[in-house]
Every structure is written in C-alpha cells, then in structure tokens.
Design a protein around this nucleic acid. Structure first.
Lengths: 146, 146
DNA sequence: TTCCAACATTGGTCTCGCCAACTATACGAC
DNA sequence: GTCGTATAGTTGGCGAGACCAATGTTGGAA
C-alpha cells in the first residue's frame, strides 16, 4: 500500500539521488547545530587544506559557481570566519584567508559531519563501507572528467 | 591547483551527493528531451504499476510531499497525461488515473532513463554495478525505515 | 453529535546548481 | 602603446527538489 514502484527502486540513479537526500538531510541537521551549511563547509575546508586562494580558485576546488562563492563568502565574512583582501599582484583577484574563528567553526562542522558518516553507513560493516566508497569514487572521478 | 579537498573527497556523504548531482543532471537532460521532469516520472510510474490511486497515496509511494503531488498533477493533467476524479466512496479523495497518452509519455521517459543508467555506471563492469546497487539498496531501505 | 484524523490545496522557505550580464583588470599580439 | 581576449568578482535571476504551515472539507469513531 505504500511501496515505491520497482521501476524506480531498481534504478541506480534513483537509489543514488534518494540516498543523497538522506545524506543531505543528515548533514544539514549536523551543520545546523553548529551554524552554517554545506557551501560554508566546503570553502572553509578548502582554505584550511590548501591555504589562501582567490574566489575563482575556491569555486573550482569546491565545485561551486563563482556567484555562489560570493554569497557564501559574504556570509562567512559577516561572522569573521574568513577575510577578503585584494591581491596586490593582480587587482582582479580577492585573496581569501581563513581566520582562527573560521578554523574553530571548521572543526565543529568536521565533527558533525563525521557523525553523519556513521549514521549514513550504519547498516554496513567496515568492509562494505570501503567497497562502496571505492565504487562511488570511481564513478565520481569518471563523471568529473567528462 | 584544482583539487577537491580530501576532507571532502573522502567522505561518503560527499561522494553520494556529488554523484547524485551528476545522476540528476543526466536524468534531467533525458527527461527534457521527451518533456517532463523527475516528479512527473515518479507519479506516472506509480500509476502504471499499482493502478489508480489517491494523491496522498501517490505521495507516500513516490516519497513526495502532498503539496508537490498537487503541483505535478496539475502539470500532468494539463497535458492530459492523467485524470482526476473525486472518489464517490470518499469525497475527500481524488482518484488519479493514467491516460493512454500518459502511458506513452511514461514509455518515453522510461527509455530515456534507461540510457541514463548506462551513462551513469559506464566505467563499472557488470559485477561492480550489481554490488553497488546492492549496497545502495541496503542503505536506502535502512534509512527509509528510520 | 462531537471531535479527531485524513485529504486536497495554497503559499511560502531553503539548499543547491546554474546562467546571463556587467565592470574591472591583466596580458598577449600587433 | 593600443586592441582584443581572457579572467575575476559581483549582481540578479531561475529551476528542481524537499519540506512546512495553514485552511477547509469530509469520514469515521467515541
């Protein structure tokens, strides 16, 4: 009486997108507790990992549109989690830096996100988790090149 | 210079949501060619598979909010792909039926979606595709109960 | 009959992804 | 040096998907 059509349930694209909904919901709840959302985490993580960068570079690293980078950066800057300064060597660019407060926020989001992974993969034993990660990585890298 | 932060790339939730973006894009392109979008396909598939149903039931089957069912049904009905009739036994309900045109449209969407699966899983051999589908199904059924 | 539950509908929100247009700056070819 | 092109940042907008709150109607059980 409440069954999903097998036409849907059998399709990998359905499994993937529906599971992504759950993953996104879990992540949003986790992020919501510490403030911020997905876009904020991506940028903070990129800055902490590869150092200061221009906005265009951040967009490329995080798979984000430049306009969305602008918006997210405005929000992050409003909370002093990140700083913008025009590049003296190329005045078109903004050099974005993460602040100490930004690093603290990142740590919180990181912890929340780690808990999300556990919730998400809960029913799978470690071996299966590794297999899944591997398969997904293969697919994603393929589609990123294309 | 353009690498995704490993903090992201290593997380299953990231792999899942990003891959879902590609899956969704492929599906949208496929549906776009024959008209309609994801919500339309879900409803048509549910109707063809389990027969006429009330809107609330469709929402439960397709994992859709009732308000979104209303909107999608308006669009489908405008193209004569489905028909709404108030249930004589329960005048709160609308009994939704798929029309012959609806079945034709469904076939087209079905074919488009099948091509999407191939594109999506292209780099994986059959055995790996089965494994992936199995793992995803395990996770999805778990999260649907919770 | 009264009260609660389910149904359909309206209208609004949020996230994410994407696109078009505009300005300012850099840089290479000429 | 000037011209054309490419890149950077910004603004404003759109669509899909998921979701939420309020409303009015109808059914059914206490």
């Amino acid at each position: 009486m409440e069954e999903t059509p097998v036409r849907l349930a059998a399709k990998p694209s359905w499994l993937l997108t529906q599971l992504a909904v759950h993953a996104h919901r879990l992540a949003s709840e986790g992020f919501g507790e510490v403030g911020g959302r997905g876009y904020h985490y991506r940028i903070l993580a990129a800055l902490a990992e590869s150092g200061a960068a221009s906005q265009a570079e951040l967009g490329r690293r995080c798979t984000m549109d430049r306009s969305d980078v602008v918006a997210a950066l405005n929000e992050l800057a409003a909370d002093d989690l990140v700083e913008r300064a025009t590049d003296p060597h190329d005045r078109r660019r903004n050099i974005v830096t993460i602040t100490p407060a930004g690093r603290r926020r990142l740590r919180l989001m990181e912890q929340a996100l780690d808990r999300v992974q556990d919730d998400l993969l809960e029913p799978l034993p470690l071996e299966d988790r590794r297999t899944l990660t591997l398969l997904l990585t293969r697919l994603l890298t393929h589609h990123q090149r294309t």
